[in-house]
Design a protein around this nucleic acid. Structure first.
Lengths: 240, 240
DNA sequence: GTCTATAGTGCGATAGAC
DNA sequence: GTCTATCGCACTATAGAC
C-alpha cells in the first residue's frame, strides 16, 4: 500500500519474478507426478525447464503445431523417448506450458495491483505492471496468444475469460477515476479494450520495437501518456 | 479531393469494394494461367473463389498449416485432384491468397487517401478507411496476420514492409498535423504504431466486439475520438 | 532415466480413368 | 476438367535395450 511515485523499475520487477518461476516449475512437477515418469525432482525440473524453453522458442518462430517433436528433441537435447517421460502427448505438453504461464502471470498481476490510491497512478501502475510482465515472459505471452485458437473448446473459453479478466482490472480503475472526476471518457469498456490492445502490441510486434531500439520502460511511459491524454487526465489532475 | 465531413459509410465503402474483388480474382487467374491447368476463365474463377473462401474459413479456426488438403477438398466441394489443377503445392495456394489480399487492400487504401486536407479529418478518414477495409476483408486480414510468421524469409520481410507502409500513412498525417499546430504529440512513430494496434484489434478480437454487439462504425468513432484525444486535438482545433 | 528403432497413421502430391 | 486410387514420406507415439 506504499505510495511511491511509480511501479518499480523493470529491473526490479524482473528480479522479483525470477525465483517464483523456479518455484512454480517445481510445483508443476509435484502436481503432475502421476503423468511424469521421471521421479527425481532435481532431474525432472531441470529437463522440464529445457523442454519448455525449447518449445517456446520453436513455437515462437513456426507455431506449436508446425513444430515437430523431432525438432523439440534436437532443440531440448532430449531424445524422443525421454520427452515422452515428461508428457503423454504433444497436446498435454501445450497444456503444461499454458497452465504454467497462466499461474505465473496471474500471481504477478495480483501482487502489483492496489499499490496506489490515486486513479491516474493506479492506471499507470497497472499498465507498467502488465508491460513488465509480458516483457519478462515474452516468449510465453506470444505463445499463449498464438495458440489460443488451437485450444480445445473448454480451454479456449478459459483463455477468453482470462482476456476479459485483465480488462476488468482496467475497467475498475477507469470507472473509479471517472467517478472521482479525474478522467473524462464516455466508453469505459472500449477504453479498457484499447489499453489491452496497446499492451499486447508490445509482445506481438517485438521485432518492430526492437529494431527501433525501444525498451519496455520507454514504451510503458509512452502508453501511459497516450492513454492519460485520451481520457483527458491532465498532469494537474492526477492527484485528485 | 472532395471535402465531405467524413469518409463514406461502411455500407458504401463495402459496395464500392465488391466489384473490385471479382476483377482481381480474374486478374489473378490471367496472371497464373501458366500454373493453373484449368483454361476456361469462368470455371476457374468460380472455383478459385470457392477454394479461397474455404481456405480462409479453415485457416481462421485452425490455421493454414493445421488445415489438411483433404479438409479443404471437402469444404470447397472439389476433389484433391481438382484442387491441384489450381495450385501446384499447398504453399503456392497460401501465396495466391496472400497476394490477392495485398493487392485488394493496397488499392482500396490508396483510393481513400488524400480525400481531405485538414489534419484531423485526414486522420479520421484514414482510420475509418482502414477499419472498413479490414471489416470487409476480415477473414483475409486475420489470415494474413496469423500466417505472416510462417512465410518464407523473403515474403515475411515483405509482410513487415507492408506493416511499415501502413504506419507511414499515419506518420505522414501526424507529422503534418503537428507542423500545422493541430496536434500536440511528442512521439510520432510510436503514436502511429499505437493507432495501428487499435486498428488491428478490430479483426483480431472480433469475438469480443461481436459479443458486445458493436459495429465497425461505432468502433471507428471510438478510435477516432480516443486518438484525437490522446494527441490533444480539440474539436475547435479540427479546422486548423 | 535415457536411448535407438520402429509401428501405425495421416499427410501432400500424383497418375490415370472417365 | 474432375474424379478415385495410391505412392512415398514425415509425423506422433511406443517398445525394448542399456
Amino acid at each position: 500500500m506504499s505510495e511511491s511515485p511509480a511501479t518499480a523499475s523493470y529491473a526490479e520487477f524482473s528480479r522479483r519474478l525470477k525465483p517464483r518461476m523456479a518455484e512454480l516449475l517445481a510445483a508443476l512437477f509435484q502436481e503432475n507426478r502421476g503423468s511424469i515418469r521421471v521421479k527425481k525432482e532435481k532431474v525432472a525440473v531441470k529437463n522440464l525447464e529445457k523442454i519448455f524453453a525449447a518449445a517456446l522458442a520453436l513455437g515462437q518462430t513456426k507455431g506449436f503445431h508446425a513444430m515437430s517433436l523431432r525438432e523439440l528433441s534436437r532443440a531440448s537435447g532430449l531424445s524422443m523417448g525421454a520427452l515422452y517421460s515428461y508428457f503423454s502427448s504433444k497436446e498435454e505438453l501445450r497444456g503444461h506450458i499454458l497452465r504454467f504461464g497462466v499461474r505465473l502471470a496471474s500471481e504477478a498481476v495480483e501482487a502489483e495491483a492496489k499499490r496506489y490510491s490515486r486513479p491516474a497512478e493506479q492506471l499507470a501502475g497497472a499498465i507498467r505492471a502488465h508491460l513488465f510482465l509480458s516483457e519478462a515472459l515474452r516468449p510465453w505471452f506470444y505463445f499463449a496468444y498464438m495458440e489460443a485458437r488451437n485450444l480445445p473448446a473448454k480451454e479456449r473459453e478459459q483463455a477468453m475469460a482470462n482476456e476479459r479478466r485483465t480488462e476488468a482490472v482496467f475497467v475498475r480503475i477507469l470507472r473509479e477515476g471517472k467517478k472521482r472526476g479525474a478522467f473524462r471518457l464516455p466508453e469505459v469498456e472500449l477504453t479498457a479494450a484499447a489499453i489491452k490492445a496497446l499492451l499486447q502490441d508490445w509482445y506481438l510486434k517485438r521485432w518492430k520495437y526492437g529494431q527501433a531500439g525501444l525498451g519496455v520502460e520507454e514504451y510503458a511511459a509512452f502508453v501511459v501518456n497516450f492513454v492519460l491524454g485520451a481520457i483527458r487526465a491532465r498532469p494537474k489532475e492526477w492527484g485528485k
